[in-house]
């Protein structure tokens, strides 16, 4: 348990060091929100069929993509519906969380 906490702090430190301030989000919130993503986007980072892998995705790109779905500039009914209900803070939280993960296929 202690080990897990230490790993988490290390990951957090890495995250703070690497993520630009404007893209940094509430990682715990991101982790909860990500449970909505994992029904389609595998948490292992594996891609199957037409659902892209999002684990380890750079935060800035993640935010830009989600904003494009939210503004309906990118097509996909399911992703537009998801993005429509996410605030900018929530998108930043998701981006920070997914960027902090490593694929584990």
């Amino acid at each position: 348990m202690r080990g897990t906490g230490a790993v988490r702090l290390a990951v957090l430190g890495l995250m703070l060091a690497c993520v630009p301030a404007e893209a940094a989000g509430d990682r715990a919130l991101g982790e909860y929100l990500s449970s909505e993503c994992t029904s389609c986007h595998q948490s292992s980072g594996k891609q199957v069929g037409g659902i892209p892998a999002i684990v380890g995705h750079p935060a800035e790109q993640f935010v830009a993509l989600m904003n494009a779905y939210r503004e309906r500039q990118r097509d996909n009914q399911a992703m537009q519906a998801v993005a429509a209900r996410l605030s900018s803070e929530e998108i930043a939280a998701l981006a920070a969380y997914y960027e902090s993960l490593k694929p584990n296929p």
Partner: peptide
């Protein structure tokens, strides 16, 4: 056709989300 590719990917993901 894209919808079907999503359907295939969703099945793989939700079963991983349940059983892995």
């Amino acid at each position: 056709k894209e919808n079907q590719a999503e359907n295939v990917g969703w099945y793989a993901a939700i079963t991983a989300d349940m059983f892995s």
